Simulated assay, not measured.
Amino acid sequence: MQRARSLVAFVLLALSSSFASAFDPSPLQDFCVAIKDPKDGVFVNGKFCRDPMLATANDFSFSGLNIPGNTSNKVGSNVTLVNVDKIPGLNTLGISLARIDFAPYGGLNPPHTHPRATEILVVLEGTLYVGFVTSNPNRLITKFLNAGDVFVFPVGLIHFQFNIGQTNAVAISGLSSQNPGVITIANAVFGSNPPINLDVLTKAFQVDKNVVNYLQKQFWVNNH
């Protein structure tokens, strides 16, 4: 009898934990056009949204991806991100995209991560050397891509794209988040504000303090 009671108690506890962590796996309405001021919207599915009856085509569109980005910077690349800040109608839909332009040979989208998104990249023009690094042990997976080739960068992993051709290169990326975020490794480590403690970086990278001082004084380019 005691065993039966214990089993019932265990099942009830498991069910209560399951209910507590339950959630809706997808939006509960067709769309939720993001707004900044709650007084102008309605509360739907945990978000303030514009009244769906007031939504327009402009809430779901963006123009300009046909325009090449300016690659005249130190890394020779430019990322034009189209996320929920550019298309309010992306809110709750879990998707965004970007155009990436690369200067001729040497244009680089530096090693970075997207903390909230997997990325799928298709090359439209040029030849790219791309890759990502797995979590420990850190294995590098790379490939050379030509126009029409596709490559996937798993969520959260450090990855890069490098133009090895003698002409401009262009790629389009799809991302599995309306706001994927980006952490450019060099910028984050050596260009943070305030700076990371010098002793931390010298020990982490096992280099002289003068090297870290030099790196922290550089102007780290944000190509987004």
Rank of each mutant, 00 (worst) to 15 (best):
T71N: 09
A55Q: 12
N45F: 01
N83G: 12
T80F: 14
K47P: 00
P88M: 15
P68F: 15
D40F: 09
K39E: 00
V79G: 08
P88H: 11
S77P: 02
V44N: 05
V84T: 06
F60Q: 05
K86R: 14
F48H: 03
G64M: 08
V75F: 08
I87V: 13
D59C: 02
F48I: 00
F62P: 03
N66A: 14
P52Y: 01
A55G: 14
T80Y: 11
S61H: 04
S77N: 11
V79P: 02
M53Y: 03
G46H: 01
N70Y: 11
S61Y: 12
G64Q: 10
A55I: 00
D85Q: 06
T71S: 10
P52R: 07
T71V: 08
K39R: 08
D59R: 01
F60A: 07
G89H: 09
G46K: 01
N58S: 13
T71F: 09
K47E: 05
N73W: 14
R50L: 00
L65K: 10
D51I: 03
D85E: 08
T56E: 11
G64T: 09
G64H: 09
P88Q: 11
D85W: 10
D59S: 02
P68M: 14
F48L: 01
V84L: 10
K39C: 00
P68S: 15
N73D: 15
D85G: 07
M53N: 14
N78G: 05
G89C: 13
D51R: 03
K86T: 11
M53D: 13
G69E: 13
F60T: 06
R50V: 00
G89M: 15
V82F: 13
K74I: 06
D40T: 04
G46T: 01
N78M: 15
S77L: 08
L81G: 04
G64A: 11
D59Y: 01
V42E: 08
L65M: 15
P88D: 11
N78W: 15
P68K: 08
F60R: 04
